[in-house]
Design a protein around this nucleic acid. Structure first.
Length: 816
DNA sequence: ATATACACGGATCCCCTATTTCC
DNA sequence: GGAAATAGGGGATCCGTGTA
C-alpha cells in the first residue's frame, strides 16, 4: 500500500536482535500513522596509512568473527567494505563494518584494538540520528511511503494491535514529495497542586486546551461553575480522565511549561501513589524519564514538549523579559499575562472558580505560545534535521553538533567521536585563552558619534582563516595561516576544511533567507533565517566547548587573536584619518565624527572594506547625537562595557548600566535611566541634578513605596552550596522557613530594612522579604543604591553627588 | 553540567592590627 | 597588667549579571 506521510516522532525498538525505527506522524488526511523501518548499522575502522591489501584482508577476516552475546541478543558482523573517506582533514582508508545491532557497535569498537587500526568511529551518534542520516527521512517533511500494512500481524510481536493509530506500516520505499499543508494537533496542559515538591501533595486540577477544546478536570465540587469544568470523584479518577482525554484527542504534541520538571513527573508520581498507571502513550505505556538532574519526559507516540526549555535556548538571549516565567514570556510574545490568583493551600481557598480560571488560562497561554513558536520549531527542525522532541530541549552546542553530523556526508567525512569522561575533565581544566579586545574609554559626554561593527565577526574570521580542528596543523607548513595562542605559534592549513566550509554555507543560507524574507515576509522563512543565525553565532563557542566532538580551543583562541589584530588595525586607521576612537568592544568601534560628513565616513568605510580579506566585512551600525561614558566605581579608569548613546531617532541605547541590570532596585534603575536621558537629551546635567535631589528627598521622607525598593537576585545553586551567604541567600533561607517553595533558578525578592537594635554591619542582617513588615533603610537606599547608580555620571561634570544627596551645599554649581 | 571570554561591582570572607573589655 | 574579645581596614574571593 501507499500513503503520504510526515514524520513527527522518532523512536526505535529491537525485534529478533535487529533495530527498527518506529516513526509516528500523519498522512495528508490527518490520520495518525506509525511507520516501521529498518536501517543498516555500521561503524568505521580507520586504517593506518599504507597498509597492504593482504594485511587488510587479514584484519577483515579477524573482524568478521567478532560476535557480541548478551541475554537479549547475539550481534554479528554482517559485512565489511573498504572505503576511501576523509577524517579530520586527512584522506584515509576505512573499513565500513556492518553489524546486526546498533547498540552493540560500541562494544564491537572496543574489540577492534588491532595495531593496524588507527581509530574507530561512528558508533556513538544515537540510533535515531544515525537513522535520519542513513535514510534521509527528515522530520516534518512530506514523503510518499509504500510498504506492507500490518493488520493483526504477528510481525514485531503484534505491535500494530497495541497502537492507537489508524495505520501501522512496514516501510519498503520512501520518497520525498512536494510540501503539503500541515497543522499539528496540539494539546496544552497544566496542573495545580498543594505541594511544590514532586508527588508530595494532591493534584487539585488539570487543565487541557486544544483546538476548540477547553477543559478543567477537578475533584473539587463547586456550585455554578463554568461549562469547561468537569468534576470527577477523586484524584485517581482525575488521572484516569486525563489519560482518557489525551487518548481521545490523540495529539501530535502534548505541551506544557516547565512540564519536564513539574507537571509530568508529578502526574506520574501521583499515579504511582494510587498504584495506577499513567497510560499516555499510544501503546498505553507510561511516560519515561531520563535519569540525571534535568528530567526529560518522553511519551510514546506523542511528542511531549516543555516550552520553557525551547525558550531558554532559542529565545532568551534576545528577550526583554527578566525571567522566563510563563507570565513574562506570555507577556512578551502574546501581550497577555497569567490570571491573578493568590496561592493558598486548597483547604483555605474560597473562590475555586477563580482558581479554575487561572489554571485554564495557563494552558491557554501555553497553547498560544506553542502556536507562536511553531514556525521556529519547523525552522530549527528543517535546518538541524533532528526531531522536535530533541531540538526543543537541546542547548546550542548540541544543535550545532547535530547540524554538523547531518551534513558530514557531503564532505565524505567520518564523524569524530564524543569526548570521554577523562577528556572532558581535562578540557574543563584547560587554561583560558585570551578573549576579545576591549578599548578603555575616557569618561565624558561626547557629541556626534559614528559606530561601526563587523558583520558576524567570529564566523567571518573562522571562515576566512580556515580555523577548525581538521585544519589545525601539527607544525608550520608553507602557505598556512598563523596565530599566537597562549604564547604559542599555531598554524592552520589553507586547504578549506569541512567545518569552515559548512559555516560559510550557513552564513550564505542565512543571507539568502534574509533577502527572501525582505521581499516576501513569511514566518517560516524568518524562523529558518533565525536558525541559521543562531547556528553561525554559536559555532565559535562550540569549538571552545569541552563537550564538543570538534573541540578545538586553538581555533577559538586563534579567532580571538585575529579579532584583536583586526579591530586594533581599524582603530588606528580611524585615528590616523582624523577621527577619534572613543570606545571599542570585540567587533564594534565608536568614534567622533570630527565635523566630517556621513558621506565621508561611508566612503572611508568602503575603502577599509576593500582591504579586508575573505568574507570579513565592516558595516555602519549607526550615527549618534550624543554618548556617555563613565569611570569605574573605583573612579580611576574608564569603565568598559558600560555606555549610553542617543540615536538620531532620539532612541536611547543603554549598555551595561545599572538601568539594564535586574539585580538593582527599580528606584535606582529608573533614577539612573532618567538621569541618563536628561543628560543625553539636554547635553548637560542641570535638570538631572534637580531630579536626583528630589528623589533623595523622597527617600528621606519615606515617600517611596516598597515595591520600588525590592531587589531581585537569582538563586543560581542549591542553598547548601553557597560559601558566601549574600543577602539573596538569606532571603531564600527565610522563604524556606516559611515553607515557601524555592529551588535553584528562582528569582529571590527582598528589601533592606532598618533593624534597630542590631549592630551588625552586614547587609544580610537587614534583609526582609517583601511581605515582611518593616521600614526601609534610608541610608542603604541612598548610599548603596541611588548614589552608586548616578555618582559616576555626575563625576563626568565634576559634581560630587554624595554631597548632593546628603543635602550639603553644592559648591561646583553654585546655588540654584 | 552541556557555546566562549571580558568586565563590573556588591557583599562576604578572612587575615591582620589596633583598640576595648574583662578579670 | 595581661589576656581575650571586638572593631575596622583592606585585599581576596564569591556571586550575579551584563557585553560582545
Amino acid at each position: 500500500m501507499k500513503t503520504s506521510f510526515i514524520p513527527i516522532d522518532y523512536d526505535y525498538f529491537d525485534w529478533k536482535g535487529k533495530n527498527y525505527a518506529k516513526l509516528v506522524g500523519r498522512n495528508e488526511k490527518g490520520e495518525k500513522i506509525c511507520l516501521i523501518d529498518s536501517c543498516p548499522a555500521y561503524l568505521w575502522a580507520i586504517l593506518k596509512e599504507n597498509l597492504k591489501q593482504p594485511k587488510i584482508n587479514q584484519i577483515i577476516g579477524k573482524i568478521k568473527t567478532i560476535t557480541i552475546s548478551s541475554k537479549q541478543r547475539k550481534t554479528k558482523i554482517e559485512k565489511i567494505e573498504i572505503k576511501d573517506k576523509n577524517f579530520l582533514g586527512k584522506k584515509v582508508k576505512a573499513l565500513k563494518i556492518y553489524a546486526t545491532n546498533y547498540k552493540d557497535l560500541h562494544e564491537i569498537a572496543s574489540n577492534l584494538k588491532f595495531p593496524e587500526i588507527e581509530n574507530r568511529r561512528g558508533y556513538d551518534l544515537g540510533f535515531i540520528t544515525h537513522y535520519i542520516i542513513e535514510k534521509q527521512l527528515l522530520p516534518l517533511q512530506w514523503y510518499e511511503v509504500s510498504g506492507e500494512l500490518l493488520n493483526n500481524s504477528h510481525e514485531f510481536g503484534g505491535i500494530d494491535m497495541a497502537l492507537n493509530v489508524s495505520q501501522c506500516i512496514k516501510a519498503k520505499e520512501i520518497n520525498p514529495i512536494k510540501e503539503k499543508q500541515f497543522s499539528p494537533n496540539i494539546l496544552a496542559y497544566d496542573i495545580e497542586t498543594d505541594e511544590f515538591k514532586i508527588g508530595e501533595g494532591e493534584i487539585l486540577m488539570i487543565s487541557l486546551v486544544g483546538k476548540n477544546f477547553k477543559k478543567v478536570l477537578t475533584w473539587k465540587k463547586t456550585k455554578n461553575h463554568a461549562d469547561y469544568i468537569e468534576e470527577v470523584k477523586d484524584e485517581a479518577e482525575l488521572l484516569e480522565k486525563f489519560c482518557e482525554y489525551v487518548k481521545k484527542t490523540n495529539p501530535d504534541f502534548l505541551v506544557g511549561y516547565f512540564s519536564d520538571g513539574f507537571d509530568l513527573p508529578y502526574l506520574k508520581a501521583r499515579a504511582e501513589f494510587h498504584k495506577t498507571k499513567l497510560s499516555l502513550g499510544i501503546d498505553q505505556s507510561q511516560p519515561k524519564f531520563s535519569r540525571g538532574i534535568n528530567l526529560t519526559g518522553k511519551i510514546n507516540g506523542i511528542v511531549h514538549i516543555d516550552l520553557l526549555k525551547f525558550v531558554k535556548t532559542a529565545y532568551s538571549q534576545y528577550m526583554q523579559s527578566e525571567t522566563l516565567s510563563l507570565n513574562e514570556v506570555a507577556k512578551e510574545f502574546l501581550g497577555d499575562t497569567k490570571k491573578q490568583f493568590k496561592f493558598q493551600h486548597s483547604s483555605k481557598i474560597k473562590d475555586w472558580n477563580k482558581y479554575f480560571e487561572y489554571n485554564l488560562h495557563d494552558s491557554v497561554l501555553t497553547y498560544q505560545l506553542f502556536e507562536k513558536f511553531w514556525p521556529d520549531f519547523i525552522g530549527f527542525s528543517n535546518v538541524i534535521q533532528e526531531p522536535i522532541f530533541d531540538i526543543s530541549r537541546n542547548g546550542m552546542s548540541k544543535n550545532v553538533e547535530s547540524y554538523i553530523l547531518h551534513n558530514l556526508e557531503k564532505f565524505n567525512e567520518i564523524p569524530e567521536r564524543r569526548p570521554n569522561h577523562d577528556e572532558i575533565s581535562k578540557r574543563r581544566n584547560r587554561e583560558k585563552y585570551e578573549g576579545a579586545f576591549v578599548f578603555e574609554p575616557t569618561p565624558g559626554l561626547y557629541e556626534n558619534i559614528a559606530m561601526w561593527d563587523f558583520t558576524s565577526y567570529w564566523p567571518s574570521i573562522i571562515v576566512t582563516f580556515n580555523l577548525s580542528k581538521s585544519t589545525l596543523l601539527e607544525k608550520k607548513e608553507k602557505n598556512s595561516n598563523k596565530a599566537v595562542v597562549l604564547g604559542k605559534e599555531i598554524y592552520f592549513s589553507k586547504n578549506k576544511g569541512f567545518f569552515p566550509k559548512m559555516l560559510e554555507e550557513i552564513i550564505e543560507k542565512r543571507k539568502k533567507y534574509k533577502k527572501e524574507l525582505q521581499k516576501n515576509p513569511n514566518a517560516i522563512k524568518k524562523a529558518r533565517s533565525n536558525a541559521y543565525k543562531l547556528l553561525a553565532n554559536s559555532s565559535y563557542g562550540y569549538m571552545g566547548f569541552f563537550g564538543a566532538r570538534y573541540y578545538c580551543p586553538e581555533a577559538s583562541g586563534a579567532a580571538t587573536a585575529i579579532s584583536r589584530d583586526f579591530i586594533k588595525q581599524i582603530i588606528s586607521k580611524i585615528n590616523k584619518n582624523g577621527y577619534k576612537t572613543i570606545y571599542s568592544d570585540t567587533d564594534s568601534i565608536a568614534f567622533l565624527m570630527q565635523n566630517k560628513s556621513k558621506k565621508q565616513i561611508s566612503d572611508f568605510l568602503e575603502k577599509i572594506n576593500k582591504t579586508l580579506p575573505g568574507i570579513m566585512e565592516l558595516e555602519l551600525e549607526g550615527f549618534f547625537k550624543r554618548g556617555l561614558w563613565v569611570t569605574t566605581r573605583a573612579g580611576t579608569t574608564g569603565a568598559k562595557k558600560k555606555y549610553a548613546l542617543l540615536g538620531e531617532n532620539n532612541k536611547l541605547k543603554i549598555r551595561g548600566f545599572e538601568t539594564v541590570r535586574r539585580d538593582w532596585c527599580k528606584l535606582a534603575r529608573e533614577t539612573q535611566n532618567k538621569v541618563i536621558q536628561l543628560v543625553l537629551r539636554q547635553g548637560n546635567e542641570t535638570k538631572a541634578l534637580e531630579y536626583v535631589k528630589d528623589i533623595a528627598k523622597k527617600i528621606k521622607q519615606r515617600k517611596i513605596s516598597k515595591e520600588e525598593l525590592i531587589i531581585k537576585t537569582q538563586l543560581k545553586k542549591p542553598l547548601a552550596e553557597y560559601k558566601a551567604e549574600g543577602p539573596h541567600v538569606i532571603a531564600a533561607k527565610k522563604m524556606k522557613e516559611l515553607k515557601i517553595p524555592i529551588t535553584q533558578g528562582n528569582l529571590i525578592e527582598y528589601y533592606i530594612a532598618e533593624t534597630p537594635g542590631k549592630k551588625s554591619k552586614l547587609i544580610r542582617d537587614k534583609v526582609k522579604l517583601p511581605e515582611e513588615k518593616g521600614e526601609y533603610d534610608i541610608d542603604y537606599y541612598l548610599n548603596r543604591q541611588i548614589l552608586p547608580a548616578i555618582e559616576n555620571i555626575f563625576q563626568v561634570f565634576k559634581i560630587n553627588a554624595k554631597e548632593l544627596i546628603e543635602g550639603k551645599k553644592q559648591t561646583t554649581l553654585g546655588d540654584f
